[in-house]
Design a protein around this nucleic acid. Structure first.
Length: 918
RNA sequence: UGUCCGAUAGCUCAGAUGGUUAGAGCGCCGCUCUUACAAAGCGGAGGUCGACGGUUCGAAUCCGUCUCGGACUACCA
């Protein structure tokens, strides 16, 4: 083995072998365990969030696979309608052509081409992350089987009246020319104005002042509303306004919606271009004046001078004209929420169009119950509240999109505009008796991407076919995802799962946090703070990183700032940490539902951890070459480390069971480094490197070294698959295990044997002994290599026994040359002191210890003890404590006081000794 | 608008059901290249647990109020 761990050499080689051998496919006949991957968008590349999520899922998958479950991690990708179409359109633009130039068919072909390239990139990244997905079952939301599932669902919902077509206001993206669902619209505060317009009464007597953030929509006004109880305007209700510029007479109406406290208490009503106004319009039967085109320019319904103007140009012109007419009361600065498309970032318009909708309430009900009843559990639990909030107020889902890339809606129209829904055209013709003479044309629209995503937990398994996979792997066990898509995806999977499978799609939803940069900022391309997980695995130099972050930016003016920040945060680029280190870091950061600041310091530490493990293995392998059969005798250290391994194994099961990968990482890190390496390996040396130990004892230690390391590797494997596999192959051979991979070995189970208390106590005593000596060395500046003589004062029977039994350990690990026991009544020599229970460890000074330094040490220790003593006696002096606290707690406190007092006496005595000397 | 989350060492974070001296990693300060590992070993310093009240014998932990962050959600034109 190399002297240090070199991940680069082994990761890809191992992954290829695992894949070739088919280890990722479900194996055996254990209980099924299934996770479906949240399918990444084909367009993109995997970012830190994906890598984090994949790490969690892979750890769970490997853990369950090792437990003998028939484990499936279902992979796949999403066609991501809008996102993908935008990317390809941008490519076309760069080539000087466009979607429209190509035409629908050619364009879609082109997207498929792009999908193959981009999807390949994602698959490569997924492999580099070590994800043990079953590639043989890889699916894509637009492949034939999934498209079949989509059509099936659409047709059934339509036939059950749960899908309908309707003309209403939708969120219209005037750049992409498509409708959007509510969820795809993001409203953020932007600086704007509030314009106050005077609207003259038709009676000619007076005017009303209305305030608006969108002056141009006044061209579509069909009323002015006031609150019914508003005394100022009560008498005007029923009268009319003459709408300036347009000249239309519109009524003054009364509606509760109006807040009399806001502005003037008068609201202009534009039913075609505002959701609230639309509702009011319906309540009052107002005419609807659509004044916009698909591009959000003004259409022919407005006065000639405004026709064809962009909405924002028209806005200025309207304001100008009001000013000229003397009808502009005032302009205020005002912060407005501007709705923008989440992909195009264009300002979205409420717009009246024909769209397809899913009637959501009947679907939402069982989905709410599924969570209420506990059939689906959110982890952490509080996310269920978010889920309920949305589900209780859920709106019908607009599922049609005016795009070319996606599942075409399976609806056909005849020339009269009658709509027929069916699997395909021939099915429609057959069902409705439409002969070949009748021309049908298919709906031009495609479905919202999330419509097919909602079917993912069962469509990927072959549904609507009744496949074995469906029977076996539905419902899945856990969904691992981010909170940002609880509404988009999680809720919809639950609704469709309940509807079509009559069962929940998964039993638990593990919601993880968002990966942020070192300053807590969300990672995004435009901020230039994204990290490519592969760059953390393979490393990248500064110049390449800068180039990568500033390349292909939409807003090029941000590049210099990004470059500066990048040079500041990564002055030396990024080291190659290897996949395992990255995964271990993600695991350690996977705390319950809180966002994660990704810190390079952490990954560095886990790279070191991998190296530590590597070197521990080197030591074990070096020392176990000569394994032979024969009697085994296990030392106290052997028995101790096995007990510790058992305890750690229990911890690992508990933490995996509760999705606390952070605690799992912490527990296994602690065991590996601070118990196995720091102590056990050191304690094994005196046994193996001494002629005095018996062959049986040496055998026992060798056996333990191999056994514990082998189990440790299995405990670690779900988290750090590569380095564990690489080491394991050699260790397994030594251990006499005949198997090809650690992946399919059983996950360790804690033994039922009671912990070996004697051995544990002995080794704890040895540790305390050594630590005491080391402390004296450290603080007295005695070289670690210098052998010391130790005198035991007030040694009990068991202290003496232990000192005798483990003298060889103390000698080697503590560099204690000689131990002598001070007889009762004998004068102790001037010495530096450490305490071990009631016993004192004395390191005689013989010129090597500084009296003042030792005095300072003692004073410091005594201060600490005195503080604690004061606290404890204070407690006991409190009658309430003594009377009310559980007896065990009180008793414990009494014992502590005795301990402290005894310790204090000892230290005082020692201090006196020093004073005598001085 | 409503809901939720967070505030613990210089930094990034752990701290079930309230109970010994509040922990880890990194960083920092010393000392060591001791034959698995300097990507290491050993020792050490560093925290009135956001603020104020309350419950309790006892609060980082439970309950209120507040401050400062963050997220989601709904909005008054």
């Amino acid at each position: 083995m190399d002297k240090s761990y070199q991940p680069k050499d082994i990761e890809q080689r191992l992954y290829e072998r695992w894949e070739e051998k088919g280890y990722f496919a479900p194996q055996g006949d254990g209980e099924p365990y299934c996770i479906v991957i949240p399918p990444p968008n084909v367009t993109g590349t995997l970012h830190m969030g994906h890598a984090f999520q994949d790490t969690i899922m892979d750890a769970l998958t490997r853990y369950h696979r090792m437990q003998g479950h028939r484990t499936l991690w279902q992979p796949g990708m999403d066609h991501a309608g809008i996102a993908t179409q935008m990317v390809v359109e941008r490519l076309l633009n760069a080539e000087g052509t466009s979607r429209r130039d190509l035409g629908r068919e050619k364009f879609v072909e082109r997207v498929w081409q792009w999908k193959d390239e981009s999807g390949g990139q994602i698959a490569r990244q997924t492999r580099r992350l070590g994800a043990s997905v079953d590639w043989s079952r890889d699916r894509f939301t637009m492949d034939e089987g999934l498209s079949e599932a989509v059509r099936h669902v659409f047709v059934q919902l339509y036939e059950e009246d749960l899908i309908y077509r309707g003309k209403r206001l939708v969120n219209w993206d005037p750049v992409l020319h498509t409708a959007l669902s509510d969820l795809e619209v993001l409203a953020d505060d932007e600086a704007g104005n509030l314009w106050h317009f005077r609207y003259p009464l038709a009676s000619g007597e007076g005017q009303l002042v209305v305030a608006t953030t969108r002056p141009e929509t006044m061209l579509g006004d069909s009323a002015v509303a006031v609150h019914p109880e508003d005394e100022r305007y009560k008498d005007l209700v029923g009268q009319e306004i003459v709408l300036p510029i347009v000249g239309r007479r519109i009524p003054i109406i009364a509606d509760d919606y109006v807040d009399p406290e806001f502005g003037t208490g008068c609201v202009k009503i534009t039913p075609a271009h505002d959701f609230n106004d639309y509702d009011i319009g319906k309540r009052h039967d107002l005419p609807i004046y659509n004044i916009l085109t698909d591009d959000a320019a003004l259409n022919d319904a407005v006065p000639e001078a405004y026709r064809g103007l962009d909405r924002f140009v028209a806005r200025d012109k309207i304001v100008e004209e009001f000013k000229e007419l003397g009808l502009l009361e005032k302009i205020e600065d005002y912060t407005v929420k501007i709705p923008r498309g989440d992909r195009s970032h264009a300002v979205v318009e409420p717009y009246l169009t024909d769209q397809w909708y899913v009637k959501i309430e009947p679907l939402a009900k069982p989905a709410i119950e599924a969570v209420e009843s506990g059939r689906i559990r959110f982890v952490p639990e509080n996310w269920s509240k978010t889920y309920f909030d949305w589900m209780y107020n859920i709106q019908d889902w607009c599922i049609s999109r005016q795009l070319w890339w996606g599942h075409r809606i399976p609806a056909w129209y005849d020339e009269a505009g009658n709509v027929y829904v069916g699997h395909d055209e021939s099915a429609v013709r057959e069902k409705h008796g439409l002969g070949p003479g009748i021309a049908l044309r298919q709906d031009e629209d495609v479905l919202d991407t999330w419509f097919s995503s909602a079917l993912w937990p069962f469509s990927t398994l072959g549904w609507p076919e009744k496949t074995d996979a469906v029977k076996e792997f539905y419902p899945g066990n856990v969904l691992v995802t981010g909170f940002d898509i609880i509404f988009f995806w999680v809720a919809r999977m639950i609704m469709f799962g309940m509807k079509f499978m009559d069962d929940v799609p998964f039993r638990e939803v593990y919601i993880h946090g968002l990966i942020r940069d070192q300053d807590g900022q969300k990672m995004s391309k435009s901020k230039g703070n994204v990290l490519d997980p592969l760059d953390l695995i393979d490393g990248i130099d500064l110049e390449s990183l800068v180039a990568k972050r500033t390349a292909g930016m939409m807003q090029t003016h941000l590049a210099p700032g990004i470059e500066k920040a990048t040079r500041k945060h990564f002055p030396d680029g990024i080291d190659a940490y290897g996949c395992d280190a990255l995964r271990m870091t993600f695991g350690a950061l996977a705390t319950t539902g809180r966002d994660i600041r990704f810190d390079l310091g952490r990954i560095e530490g886990y790279k070191n951890f991998c190296n530590k493990l590597w070197n521990a293995a080197r030591y074990v392998l070096m020392n176990t070459a000569a394994l032979d059969d024969g009697d085994l005798e296990f030392s106290a250290a052997d028995r101790w480390i096995r007990a510790r391994l058992d305890a750690t194994t229990r911890d690992m099961h508990r933490h995996f069971g509760s999705y606390r990968l952070d605690l799992a990482v912490q527990a296994i890190y602690e065991f590996t480094w601070h118990e196995f390496c720091d102590w056990y390996l050191e304690l094994s040396k005196p046994v193996l490197q001494s002629d005095e130990s018996s062959a049986a004892l040496q055998r026992g230690t060798r056996r333990t070294l191999i056994d514990v390391l082998e189990a440790l590797l299995r405990l670690l494997h779900p988290l750090i698959p590569f380095v564990t596999e690489e080491i394991w192959e050699q260790v397994a051979e030594r251990a006499g295990i005949d198997a090809d991979t650690i992946m399919l070995r059983p996950y360790p189970e804690a033994s039922d044997d009671a912990a070996d208390d004697d051995a544990v106590a002995d080794i704890e005593w040895v540790k305390q002994f050594v630590l005491g000596i080391r402390q004296i060395r450290g603080e007295m500046d005695i070289s670690p290599g210098k052998p010391l003589t130790v005198v035991l004062q007030q040694a009990s029977e068991s202290d003496r026994r232990r000192a005798g039994d483990h003298a060889h350990l103390l000698q080697r690990v503590g560099r204690v040359e000689a131990i002598s026991v001070l007889a009762d009544g004998d004068q102790p020599p001037p010495a530096a002191t450490a305490l071990l229970g009631d016993m004192r460890l004395l390191v005689p000074m013989k010129g090597l210890i500084d009296v003042d330094a030792e005095r300072a040490r003692l004073e410091k220790q005594m201060d600490k003890v005195r503080a604690e003593l004061a606290k404890a006696t204070g407690k006991l002096a409190n009658e309430n404590f003594v009377n009310n606290a559980p007896p065990a707690v009180v008793e414990q406190e009494r014992e502590r006081v005795l301990e402290f007092e005894k310790t204090l006496t000892q230290l005082e005595e020692q201090l006196r000794k020093l004073d005598e000397l001085a």
